[in-house]
Amino acid sequence: MSPTLALHHAAAKRCVDLLGALVALVLVAPLLAVLALLVKLDSPGPVLFVQTRVGRGGRTFRMLKVRTMRVGADAEKATLAALNQSDDARLFKIPSDPRVTTVGRVLRRWSLDELPQLWNVVAGHMSLVGPRPFFESDLDDYEAHHFRRLAVKPGITGLWQVSGRSDILDFEDVVRLDRHYIEHWSLALDLQILARTLPVVMSRSGAY
């Protein structure tokens, strides 16, 4: 897969990612400590949830999140398939997922469970802005044009997230937004998406 960004553009994006993620990690460190305590008090299990996702070029990485579900929730996914709001298994969306813990529901509503992914950005697995990372098993159902979304690093936020998040239930709409981002990338676009992210999070639009 040929690179999408020119070398100097990729370098500029990486500098913004690294600086932004490091500053954000310092600022949210006290909050992460509080969240860790709340998660431990709310339900048994680890604070962090580690999941394998697909990144740039189809390479896998371990994505970090604050745990919002009970331990063993992944094994229950098949039994809840009938509750999926989307007809596509690649977009598994349940508004009142019974696996989510009490604290986890609050964290999801405010997207606080995503904060550990700042470390994924520092490590180079992710970008602040980019397509949402999906599961490796999803690639089995990809058509040729779907693989275009793997041309750049996945992001903590992106055009999909600021355009509806969980309210978008058609995988083709997700791909269309991701491809638009990739094909029209600029630092200005990244900054615009970052600026739109906070209002979307505060409004809790499409979050569950």
Results as ranks from 00 to 15, higher is better:
residue 1 M to I: 14
residue 1 M to F: 14
residue 8 H to F: 02
residue 11 A to V: 14
residue 12 A to P: 02
residue 13 K to W: 09
residue 19 L to R: 06
residue 20 G to I: 01
residue 24 A to K: 04
residue 30 P to L: 09
residue 30 P to W: 13
residue 31 L to D: 03
residue 33 A to P: 05
residue 34 V to S: 05
residue 36 A to D: 00
residue 42 D to C: 01
residue 46 P to R: 11
residue 47 V to M: 07
residue 47 V to I: 14
residue 48 L to H: 00
residue 49 F to T: 03
residue 49 F to S: 02
residue 50 V to W: 06
residue 61 F to K: 02
residue 63 M to C: 15
residue 67 R to T: 09
residue 70 R to Y: 08
residue 73 A to L: 02
residue 80 L to W: 03
residue 80 L to E: 13
residue 82 A to Q: 15
residue 82 A to G: 10
residue 82 A to W: 10
residue 86 S to W: 03
residue 87 D to C: 04
residue 89 A to T: 07
residue 90 R to M: 04
residue 90 R to T: 02
residue 93 K to C: 04
residue 93 K to Q: 10
residue 93 K to A: 05
residue 95 P to F: 07
residue 95 P to V: 10
residue 96 S to P: 09
residue 102 T to W: 12
residue 112 L to K: 06
residue 115 L to P: 00
residue 116 P to T: 11
residue 118 L to Q: 02
residue 118 L to R: 02
residue 122 V to Y: 10
residue 125 H to A: 15
residue 126 M to H: 07
residue 127 S to A: 15
residue 134 F to H: 12
residue 135 F to H: 06
residue 138 D to G: 05
residue 140 D to V: 12
residue 151 A to Q: 05
residue 153 K to F: 12
residue 157 T to Q: 00
residue 159 L to C: 05
residue 162 V to F: 01
residue 165 R to H: 14
residue 167 D to E: 14
residue 169 L to T: 12
residue 172 E to C: 08
residue 177 L to V: 08
residue 177 L to S: 04
residue 182 I to Q: 04
residue 183 E to H: 06
residue 192 Q to D: 14
residue 192 Q to Y: 12
residue 192 Q to V: 15
residue 200 V to S: 14
residue 202 M to A: 15
residue 203 S to R: 15
residue 204 R to T: 14
residue 204 R to W: 08
residue 205 S to Q: 15
residue 205 S to F: 15
residue 208 Y to M: 09
